[in-house]
């Protein structure tokens, strides 16, 4: 028990939690925007891969770090647009389209990577985002390492939470997105475009998801390798339900998962001799499922989620 307490009190644990949570924050926010507009985006896992590959590749080819971030977002937006066209005006199954996007985007990323670098055995490295070094703040005890020695992308993720909340709850656009996910007829009857709102929300949400991927290659690590996304997208899909489609709760959920993950790594080193490592690897997922079971019972789904809408059919 003392060990766990020591871990929970250490600043490195909390810093790691926030770092692990960062891509999830991007992903959950992205999925949340799509679903608030009524469209499930299972392309998220593939869009993570695309974001990771494009961001890294752009920097490796000589772009600046922020140029890489922009490229990742654009690539994510592109695959989001594809998903949007298939599911919104064409009204195809959101599950099938989303899984298709994931397979397609993942393969295209790997293909591009292998074509560009046919003969490398160890992945080339880039100079990633560095931890912030702010005067005074970064030197604060505890808070300094936890909050102010993170990279700029982590701060971008945190700011996005506030931005998404503000847009959804305080602007006419956000109200319209919430309405189109609840009852598209309400939007149509007020003279707004159901298709426009949904497509826009999916494109924006997908761009955010890709930033989650970009964080992996441009901040958490400094290279792209196969399998690095490792189910983070699927975790985000579950976290959206845990968060009841609210940005604030999404942040909490991502941090919770990050904390579980950071904890299991530390427990592995502390107690690895006693318990097989795989048990600890499972822990964050099992705990997430348990948290989800509790939270999802009262989940209030956007009423029009998964339901295609066609103009002139009422």
């Amino acid at each position: 028990m003392m060990d766990i307490l020591n871990i929970l009190l250490s600043e490195s644990f909390w810093a790691a939690s926030l770092r692990i949570a960062t891509p999830l924050i991007f992903g959950v926010l992205g999925a949340l925007i799509c679903e608030r507009a009524g469209v499930l985006n299972l392309g998220i896992e593939g869009i993570f891969v695309v974001g990771a590959m494009c961001g890294w590749m752009a920097v490796w080819l000589g772009a600046g770090l922020w140029g890489g971030v922009l490229m990742a977002a654009l690539a994510g937006a592109f695959f989001g647009l594809l998903h949007a066209i298939l599911t919104v005006p064409l009204g195809l199954s959101q599950h099938v389209s989303g899984l298709g996007i994931t397979l397609f985007a993942t393969s295209v990323s790997y293909f591009t990577y292998r074509t560009a670098l046919p003969n490398v055995s160890s992945p080339p490295r880039i100079e990633p985002f560095q931890p912030l070094d702010l005067p005074v703040l970064s030197d604060l005890p505890f808070l300094g390492p936890v909050l102010f020695q993170q990279t700029a992308l982590t701060w971008l993720a945190l700011m996005m939470v506030g931005l998404v909340w503000y847009v959804l709850n305080r602007t006419a656009l956000g109200v319209a997105i919430q309405a189109v996910g609840d009852n598209p007829d309400s939007v149509d009857a007020q003279g707004l475009s159901v298709y426009g709102l949904r497509i826009g929300a999916i494109v924006a949400g997908s761009a955010l998801m890709a930033l989650g991927g970009a964080f992996l290659t441009m901040s958490a690590f400094d290279a792209f390798f196969f399998g690095m996304v490792n189910g983070r997208g699927w975790v985000c899909i579950a976290l959206v339900i845990f968060a009841s489609w609210r940005p604030g709760k999404a942040l909490f959920g991502a941090l919770l998962f990050g904390a579980f993950d950071a904890l299991q790594v530390r427990l592995q080193t502390e107690m690895g001799a006693l318990v097989p490592g795989q048990v600890f690897l499972m822990a964050p997922y099992i705990l997430s499922i348990m948290a989800l079971v509790i939270a999802a019972r009262s989940a209030d789904y956007p009423r029009a989620l998964l339901q295609p809408w066609f103009k002139g059919q009422r």
Binding site: A176, A179, N183, D185, V187, Q190, L192, D300
Partner: peptide, 15 residues
């Protein structure tokens, strides 16, 4: 044609 997750004010001003 009302969005049930929004309040009346938001429904009325929508659009």
């Amino acid at each position: 044609t009302l969005a049930e997750n929004l309040n009346a004010l938001d429904n009325i001003t929508l659009g």
